[in-house]
Design a protein around this nucleic acid. Structure first.
Lengths: 185, 185
DNA sequence: GGGCCCATGTAAGTCGTTACATGATTTT
DNA sequence: AAAATCATGTAACGACTTACATGGGCCC
C-alpha cells in the first residue's frame, strides 16, 4: 500500500466524519484545519477523482436540482485512514516565517529600523491571534452539543501557539526599546 | 520594482553579510535559517543566475584550482535587500503540522491509539528540540568573537518555540493518561 | 431582479525537493 | 588510497495557489 498524498490525508480524515461533497470538505478545512493543514480546490477535486479510481472513496450523485457529488469512504478507504492515523513514520512538520528571516538579517539595519520590523511583526501576529479568537468564540457556542473532543484540542493548540508567538515578539520589542532608549537618552 | 522570489530573499540576505558562493549560502542556511526558511540547490543556483541577469548580484571566478563562482551584491541588490527588510507588506507565515492534523481526527481512534499518537508526537518533537540544542551549543562557542546579534535571537526563537511545543504535547499526554486511567481503573 | 451561497472543475504558473551527474581538493 | 568536503549544475517530479469558467438555487 502506497503512502497517501498530503491532500488525500485531509480528505480521508474529513470523510471519516461522514459523507461530504468536495465543497463541504473545503469549507470544513477552511474553518478548522486551515492553520496547520490547508487544501485548495485545485488539489481537492483532482485528488477526489484519484481516490475514487484507487477505490478508497465512492461517490454518488443524489437526485436533486443542483449538480453535486457526495463522497464517502469505502472499507479500503477506512483502512487506509486508520493505517495513516496510527502509523509511526515521521510526520510532516514545516514552518516558514518571513518575519523571523528578516530578524535574522536585522544586523544589517539601523536600530530604529530593526525595532520597526519587530513592531510590525508583533502587530501582524496579533491580527492572526484576533482572528483565531473569533473562530474559537464561534465554535465555543456549538460545543455543548458536539460530541467531538479532539478538534477543540487542535484549536487550543493554535490559540496557545499564537499567544506564545505574540508574547515572544512583544518581549523582544520591549527589550529593543529599552536598549534604544539607552542609546538615545 | 517587482517582488523578490522567496529564494531571492535568503540569497540577498546572506550576500548582505559578504561575498559567498552558492555552496556557501547553502551551508549557512542549512545551519541557521533552515528551521524557518530553507533553500535547496535546485532553487539556489538558477535563482543566482536570474539575480545576476537582473543586476542585483555580480559574480567573479577567482583564480585557483577549484572551479567556483563568488557572488556579491550590487548597489541595486543592496537597495532591493533594504527595501525588502523594511517593507511593511504582509509577511509569509506558513505552518504545516501533520501531527496536529492527526490529532484533529483522533475522535476516530480508540483512546489508547489516540494516546499512542500523542506520545509519538511528543517524542518526535523532543528529537527536533535535541537537535536544536546541539546547534545552539555549537554556536554558543563562537559567540564571543561574533559581532552579530540578531541571528542569536532567531535561534532563541527556535529553541523557545520547540520547548513550548514539547511542553504542549507532554501536557496533553499527561491529561489523556489520567482520563484513560480513570476508564481502565 | 440581484446578490449570495452552493457546487464542480481546469489551466497556468510558482515553488520546492530529490536525485543524479561531474569532478577537483583536502583530510585521514 | 579512500573518504569527506568543496563546488556547480540540471531533470524530473510533486505540491500548491490563483484565477478563471460555468451554472443552479435561495432569499430579500
Amino acid at each position: 500500500m502506497q503512502t497517501l498524498t498530503p491532500t488525500a490525508r485531509v480528505i480521508l480524515g474529513v470523510l471519516g466524519l461522514g459523507p461530504r461533497t468536495g465543497y463541504d470538505i473545503k469549507k470544513l478545512t477552511e474553518y478548522s484545519t486551515r492553520f496547520f493543514w490547508s487544501a485548495s480546490y485545485g488539489q481537492l477535486y483532482p485528488e477526489l477523482h484519484r481516490l475514487e479510481a484507487a477505490g478508497l472513496v465512492v461517490s454518488a450523485e443524489p437526485a436533486g436540482a443542483r449538480r453535486r457529488r457526495v463522497y464517502e469512504l469505502t472499507d479500503a478507504g477506512r483502512d487506509a485512514l486508520h493505517e495513516w492515523l496510527t502509523s509511526d513514520s515521521l510526520m510532516t512538520f514545516d514552518y516558514r516565517d518571513e518575519g523571523l528571516l528578516k530578524l535574522f538579517f536585522a544586523d544589517q539595519l539601523d536600530p530604529e529600523a530593526a525595532l520597526a520590523h519587530v513592531r510590525r511583526m508583533r502587530t501582524q501576529m496579533e491580527n492572526i491571534l484576533a482572528h483565531f479568537r473569533m473562530i474559537a468564540d464561534e465554535l465555543a457556542r456549538d460545543r455543548e452539543e458536539d460530541p467531538a473532543r479532539f478538534p477543540y484540542l487542535a484549536l487550543d493548540y493554535g490559540l496557545a501557539f499564537m499567544e506564545w508567538v505574540v508574547g515572544w515578539w512583544a518581549a523582544l520589542e520591549r527589550e529593543l526599546q529599552a536598549s534604544d532608549g539607552r542609546l538615545v537618552g
